[in-house]
Design a protein around this nucleic acid. Structure first.
Lengths: 293, 293
DNA sequence: CAATTTACCTGATCAAAGTCAGATAAATCT
DNA sequence: AGATTTATCTGACTTTGATCAGGTAAATTG
């Protein structure tokens, strides 16, 4: 790993914590412990279930309960049943609580403003763009790639978005039925597999595998959501699928792709795939690739 | 202020604090309170004076003293006199303490690594570049612009760097003596002024003003350090100088500049200066500007 | 040289933060 | 229906972080 990149991340962490500590300080200036302030903020104008609050703030159940009692005593929060389940309860802000919430909200805005204010217009644009980039790439860190069933609602949704995109990008259009030789049963172990990439639980990519003979696996349905492109999700899914193929005894992985999917082609080449002759009669395929495992 | 930019900053703060909180957690996993861990980290392999530690960590002197006593009891730190002043003391790490410091250092590296590791090489480059940009623009937030004497060592250093840059950039070269009609006394109120822009105490820019008649001020010596360009420092110094000129009774501000300083020319135009006819015989000037206050 | 300031230490005290072992009541399982 | 699980609450307790008043010895000031 590049030492200067590690140094950059550490220096960034230092610079940013200093800045964000300022927010905690301004929260404290309202004369309430930080824990309570955060709780008010997290409950929000719409209220929140206690379990949700516990997991979001990482609090012990007794601790949360006591803080809520304190906020109730201050007349800021009321905790009511009102859910299907009479055990679980929900915290909502009173009118006074909503005013406090708004005050904390304003403090957060003030901090943001104080960061933007001394900057020129173009510097502001550059700062927010860089922040968005950092945030997006941070998110990439928590993307997971896992084998899942291909017939769940979420898997189907990925495939629908994939097909939708093909229809948009192929010059000749795209009809999922035409030339399709696979059924959903093709992606079930041990003759196939299906992986989904997830960010905070929501799918942001998928990929499928099926064995076309005992030594050859074919990769299909590789798709990454537009919001998650450029984060290396596709290559992580590809590695996962190759590992699964190896487990199935495959010696070779092959795949096809359409001429308009340029990024896909460069991904495959980068990952060690070589272009080969047509090996199927997929009417939408223009290039065929294979890689020895 | 742009609402979406404020939202971006707030969302960035949330995303980043979550990530950086992970570092505190990993520090805690070494079974020592965060305060002590930070103290070990801050003392560092070279040791540090107690006053320095107090101001860097923002600690009460009693609190620091007690933590040092605790670290001494654990055999991690030793506090010795050894300075010119027998009141002030210096904390240094024992061998065991240096080992602890190295362990904390490794944890910081691990966090940085865990952020980089899932990313592709190009994504890593983009992340660190975006982080550097955020850091630089954050730093801009704490740049101050203030009126200072023009004959201090630091002011002179700014001017030397300014002249050095002119020598490099002017096609015809630059000799500070040639055609220079100002002396250092020109930049002393109430007939002139000198401002310095500082980032964390170090000068990153300067600018000067002198009255050439009771209603006209001339701006000179505008310079921004290469490391601080693109942060709006020049326009902040310009505004400061204009405000000072107004205070001196000036109705007009004028200035000259060399043809090779393109950024300067566009800055002046952006700030409402109009090109006028030659008003002095500065041999290095190619453009003359003025602005009514 | 006496008075003051500075740099650090000690002891007392506090609130905030966090943990843990039950208690209670509703929901779910067998 | 009885046993178990789940969601929350209560009370007891600990640690951490922080503040403050006063104390000591060295350095500086007038």
């Amino acid at each position: 790993m590049d030492v200067s990149q590690i140094a950059q991340i550490r220096s960034f962490n230092r610079a940013v914590t200093r800045r964000v500590g300022a927010l905690d300080d301004s929260y404290l200036r309202r004369g309430r412990p930080l824990g309570e302030a955060r709780l008010i903020f997290e409950i929000g104008p719409e209220g929140a279930g206690l379990g949700e609050l516990r997991s979001r703030l990482g609090l012990d159940s007794g601790y949360l309960s006591r803080m809520l009692r304190s906020l109730e005593a201050q007349g800021l929060v009321s905790v009511c049943k009102l859910d299907g389940d009479a055990r679980s309860r929900r915290a909502i802000l009173t009118e006074k609580g909503r005013a406090e919430h708004a005050a904390y909200d304003a403090l957060s805005d003030d901090l943001a403003n104080s960061i933007l204010e001394p900057l020129s217009v173009s510097a502001r644009d550059r700062l927010t763009a860089a922040m968005a980039e950092v945030e997006r790439l941070f998110a990439a860190t928590s993307i997971t790639v896992g084998e899942e069933a291909a017939d769940t609602a979420e898997a189907r949704q990925c495939l629908a978005r994939y097909f939708g995109e093909l229809a948009q990008r192929f010059e000749e259009g795209f009809d999922p039925g035409r030339g399709n030789t696979t059924t959903k049963d093709d992606f079930i172990p041990p003759m196939g597999s299906f992986v989904i990439a997830r960010l905070d639980g929501s799918p942001v990519g998928c990929g499928a595998l099926r064995m076309i003979d005992p030594a050859t696996a074919e990769i299909k349905r590789m798709w990454v959501a537009p919001s998650a492109r450029g984060l290396g999700v596709a290559s992580r899914m590809l590695h996962k699928l190759e590992a699964i193929a190896t487990g199935f005894g495959a010696k070779t992985v092959c795949l096809d792709t359409n001429r308009s999917l340029k990024e896909a082609q460069s991904l495959y080449r980068r990952e060690g795939y070589n272009e080969i002759a047509r090996f199927n009669d997929n009417p939408y395929a223009d290039h065929w690739f294979a890689k020895r495992l």
